[in-house]
């Protein structure tokens, strides 16, 4: 066991963790951040996506100890104070959510894209979401939602 200090959703957490503990286990099982989903556990599906220093990464492939000193953002950190992020609002407005299992990962991957590229074209969006699988929507409305979110974020900036 080791003591680790994590910066999660702009809050500092000091925890005792096993050396072999994965970040997804810490987030869900210790901290109750259930928006990060257990799914393939092989890095294929993107359901366990979190942002690490602004990049979308897979929490099933990161040791908790490796996340020390880095900024971790989960879906719960997207709407501090309860106000939805423009990406979340766009997903609702476009009907880009069906069963919702992939949605936290999709939203975080979209945020990571839009923070770097405020005017993505369809190809940029498809490529940025290539690590996130959705078995309900067929992706069309997700791409529409990200396009709409980019426009909404441009208006508010």
């Amino acid at each position: 066991m080791k003591t680790v200090t994590l910066d999660i959703n702009q809050k500092t957490c000091v925890l005792e963790v096993r050396d072999s503990e994965l970040l997804i286990e810490t987030l869900r099982d210790r901290l109750g951040l259930l928006g990060t989903k257990y799914s393939c556990l092989e890095g294929d599906c993107g359901a366990c996506t979190v942002l690490l220093d602004g990049n979308n990464v897979l929490s099933c492939l990161i040791l908790t100890l490796e996340a020390e000193g880095r900024k971790i953002t989960t879906i719960e950190g997207m709407s501090p104070g309860g106000e939805l992020h423009p990406v979340q609002q766009a997903f609702i407005d476009a009907g880009a959510v069906q069963c919702g299992f992939c949605t936290p990962g999709m939203v975080l991957a979209s945020k990571a894209l839009l923070d770097k590229n405020s005017h993505p074209d369809k190809e940029d969006i498809v490529r940025a979401l290539d690590g996130n699988l959705c078995r309900c929507t067929g992706y069309v409305r997700i791409v529409e939602a990200v396009t709409a979110a980019a426009k909404a974020m441009e208006k508010t900036s």
């Binding site: 890095g43 993107g46 996506t49 690490l52 990049n55 979308n56 990464v57 897979l58 492939l61 990161i62 991957a109 490529r127 940025a128 979401l129 290539d130 690590g131």
Partner: peptide, 9 residues
């Protein structure tokens, strides 16, 4: 190589 999140890791 692979996907966007895997390239970030």
């Amino acid at each position: 190589v692979a996907t966007t999140p895997l390239r970030h890791m």
